[in-house]
Simulated scan of single mutants.
Amino acid sequence: MPLDRPAGVRRRATTLGLVGLLAALATAPAALAAPVPATVPAAPGTAAGTRLDDVRVLAHFDRAAGQVAESIAPEPGGSVVIGMISARQVVRVARNGALQVLATMPPPPGGGTTTPVVGAPDVTGVARSASGAVYFLYSSGRGGLTGIWRLRRSGGPRLVVPLPADTFPNALVIDGGRHRFLVTDSAGGRIWQASLSGGKASVWSADPALAPAGFFGANGMKIHDGAVWATNSDRGTIVRVPVTEDGGSGRAEVRATGLEGIDDFDFTGRGTEILAAINQGSELVRVGADGGHETLLDADDGMQGTTAVIVRGSRVYVTNGANLAGDDPTLMLARLQRR
């Protein structure tokens, strides 16, 4: 961006672009593109910390059909489940890149124009329980549709935890130790909780560090080291919220700053070292324990509106939504090398 452009102008332009794109994609017909294997150059090593190599495209998606890849839930054997924002889909990508649509959510009455922030219905976060059940989030601007849904072996998905119509549920995490779901609400700047058995949700944390500053607040989320960690997209921060002995939330602390447009993230297995997806900058960055960060992958490596990252052993899955840059949403796979 030009150095003389005010920061507020930049955020407003980006926000309006995303809203317009999501609204346009919501009206596109659903379709799937055949995966085309590809390889991109490996990221250079870093002097200290994690590096990535063997970076390649595992699957291509159809942006015109609304397949803006948003979130990732890994499965045994190397397949992953992905939420597709404007296609309102949950899909599975096999280890060989083959795609399977698991569910397509119907548009709400009125088309979902009352969906908070974006004005279009979206499937966002996905999660898989220890028993293999797959859950996902649907934001529709309508009560009775917005909330946590479960895929079923037969029949359509079932709503298990309704959320208020004015929420934008974004990231979904299963806290198995406390038998609960945790959900970030990007519109309200909150984290909700609900029993894995289903039923009514309640606000777990509404700490000011989670609040939006004009668009999206709390976004990505993970549980790590006795705390819930979340990103704040507007503020460009990673926030740590301690979990109290009774399962409640403590006071949030900001652990990293300067990450404007951050979306999802995951821990590398080296303490609190993080890999973070920067949607606005089309980057995958490494965030150290001290909050310092460096870019590992960028547009030259195939990043386009990077949305999510999941680390499983030495395998790193990255989704590119191509919502703010480019036209090729993808699932990428890289090998993690820890130093």
Rank of each mutant, 00 (worst) to 15 (best):
T306D: 04
I262H: 02
L284I: 14
R286Q: 12
G258V: 05
T268S: 13
V285W: 02
L297C: 03
D301W: 05
G261A: 05
A256T: 10
I274S: 02
D266R: 04
I310W: 12
G313V: 06
Q304Y: 06
A276E: 06
N279F: 15
L296M: 08
S282W: 02
H293C: 02
A252L: 04
F267W: 09
Y317S: 15
G248R: 01
V287T: 06
V311G: 11
A308W: 03
T268L: 11
S249W: 08
Q280G: 09
G271K: 04
E294P: 05
L259G: 06
A256Y: 07
G248K: 02
G248Q: 06
T272G: 10
T257D: 14
A289S: 15
D290I: 09
E283Q: 15
E253G: 11
F265C: 06
G321F: 01
A252V: 11
T319Q: 05
E245L: 13
Y317P: 03
G269F: 01
H293E: 08
G269M: 03
V311R: 09
V318K: 03
I262P: 01
G321I: 01
L284N: 09
I274E: 03
V254N: 11
A299D: 10
F265E: 07
E283A: 11
T306I: 03
D301I: 00
D301N: 15
I310S: 15
T268P: 12
L284R: 04
F267P: 10
G271Y: 03
G247S: 05
G288R: 15
L296E: 03
A289R: 13
G247Y: 07
T306P: 10
G247C: 00
E253A: 14
R286F: 11
R251F: 00
A277F: 06
V309Y: 05
I310K: 14
S249K: 08
G291H: 08
I274H: 01
E253I: 12
G281W: 07
G305W: 01
H293G: 04
T272L: 14
I310C: 11
E283N: 05
T306Y: 05
H293M: 07
S249Q: 07
D264Y: 03
